[in-house]
Every structure is written in C-alpha cells, then in structure tokens.
C-alpha cells in the first residue's frame, strides 16, 4: 500500500492569485520527500493539493494533473472524499477531536470508512496505530480519556496515529514538529523513518537538518517576491541538494544567503 505520485504542470490559485506555478515532480512509493523553502513560497499549498484539501478554501482552484499510480485525482468524477481516505494528512498544529477519547480519536477515520468493527478488532487497531505512532506506552492506561488532555507532542503523535490507522497510501505532513520540543521531534523523525517502509511520505519542514535527516528526496521551492507565484526550483536526492545543489538559488538558501 504505497503509491507513486506524478505531479504534472500544476498551477494553484487562491481566487485570482496564482500562488504556485508549473510544478513537475515524481514522488516514488515508499520514500520520504521533504519540501523546503522560504515562508510563503507555497509548500503547504502544494502539499494540500495532494489530498484535495486545497479546494476546501473558498475560491481556491487548481489546474494540471496529479496522478496517483497513474490515476488523475483531479480527473472528472473523482470524489475528493475518496482521495482523502487514501491520502492521510498531519497538520502543523495538532488537532485531535477534543470531545473524543484517545481511542475514539484513533478510530475516527476508520469509523468513517466502515462503520462495523468488532470490539476486539477496534482494540487491536488502536494498539497497532498507537504503537506505529510511538505513543502506545504513554497512553495505554488512559485510552478512554479525552485526547485534548495530552501534551502537545503527544497530541501530534495521536494525530499521526489517527492518520495511519486508516492505512493510507500516502501520508502528508505539514511542519509536524514545528511546535514540538527536541525529544518529541526526534520521536516523530524516528517514526517517519519507520513509516516509509509502508507509506509514501511527504513532509514540509523549515528545519533543514530535519529534511536532511529524514528525507530521501528534497524539493526546494522559492518565490521571486511578494505577489509572485512560488516555483519548484530544484528537486533531487536529498544528499545532492545539501552537498552540491545544481541551482545557485538552492545553494544560497541552504547556506543561509538570500537574494
């Protein structure tokens, strides 16, 4: 269960504003791809087109194609709900459902997919997902307490558990560690390493060491100026992006020189 993603001529709009222009990219299954680049260059925007969450924003639209194992997710007759069931997402700020218990949070997505599930199946899945998210040991004694009672880092891992419980083909993460301490960050990075055995992972990060640590390939986006569209500048093996980038822009960004 892991899909290849081909992005072809992707332009992304907010109303009339062209936020991202002409992205071409091929993301291999069972790999981790990192999106890096300055603030406002469109990393989140591109990420959110991969599970059709972009169009949730009023007036937002997309042109171009995104193929998942060859099927265009923007093709006619494709239901965005089905796309989102196959492409999980973890947000920058942890967003567990506050009224649900930890266990219900983990099962929330699965209950949407098929409502009938025996108690033991549910217990088993909860444990598997929480173990997968590296959270099981911390919460196994309080599965029935509200998810909002956890620490920030635990909540974020709960959201990861919730996303992987549905066994998606692809997992998208938008700066999942930006609000976390170094230890939780490390836990999540380890987790990403494990996840790529099963899933195609795409992660947005501002932390270049993190990109270098977790990803196989890195995409560098940049923006020419405010009001201009963001563009994909370079997409390559993470090692070559960080050791000898092809483009000068990339080199400037990763070495901390701008403009």
């Amino acid at each position: 269960m892991s899909k290849q993603i081909d992005i072809k001529d992707l332009d992304i709009f907010y109303g009339d504003f062209r936020a991202v222009d002409g992205v071409q990219m091929q993301i291999k299954p069972r790999s981790v791809t990192a999106f890096i680049g300055p603030s406002g260059c469109g990393k989140s925007t591109v990420l959110r087109t991969l599970n059709r969450m972009h169009e949730v924003i009023p007036g937002a639209s997309v042109s171009g194609e995104i193929l998942m194992d060859g099927n265009n997710i923007y093709g006619p007759g494709v239901d965005p709900v089905n796309v989102r069931r196959e492409v999980g997402m973890v947000f920058q700020r942890a967003n567990p459902f506050p009224t649900m218990s930890i266990k219900e949070n983990v099962l929330a997505g699965v209950r949407l997919n098929n409502k009938r599930m025996s108690r033991s199946e549910a217990d088993e899945l909860t444990e598997r997902a929480l173990r997968g998210a590296n959270l099981w040991n911390e919460v196994k004694d309080r599965l029935n307490l509200p998810g909002s009672g956890l620490s920030g880092g635990q909540q974020q891992r709960l959201c990861i558990a919730r996303a992987i419980a549905v066994e998606p083909e692809v997992l998208l993460m938008d700066e999942p560690c930006s609000a976390l301490d170094p230890i939780s960050t490390l836990a999540i990075e380890d987790l990403i390493n494990d996840l790529k055995d099963k899933y195609t992972v795409v992660i947005v990060t501002h932390n270049m060491q993190q990109a270098a640590r977790v990803s196989d390939k890195t995409a560098f986006f940049n923006i020419a100026g405010t009001g201009k569209p963001g563009k994909l500048i370079e997409f390559n093996e993470t090692s070559s992006i960080f050791s000898n980038p092809e483009k000068e822009e990339t080199e400037n960004y990763i070495s901390g020189r701008f403009g």
Binding site: V81, R84, R85, F91, F97, N113, A163
Partner: peptide, 13 residues
C-alpha cells in the same frame, strides 16, 4: 475552529 473542520475533512469525512 477551522483546524477541527479540516481534521475531519482530511480523514475523508
């Protein structure tokens, strides 16, 4: 909260 709505939508609700 928008984040809560998106949490549900992103799960395929």
């Amino acid at each position: 909260p928008r984040l809560q709505e998106e949490a549900a939508l992103a799960l395929g609700a």
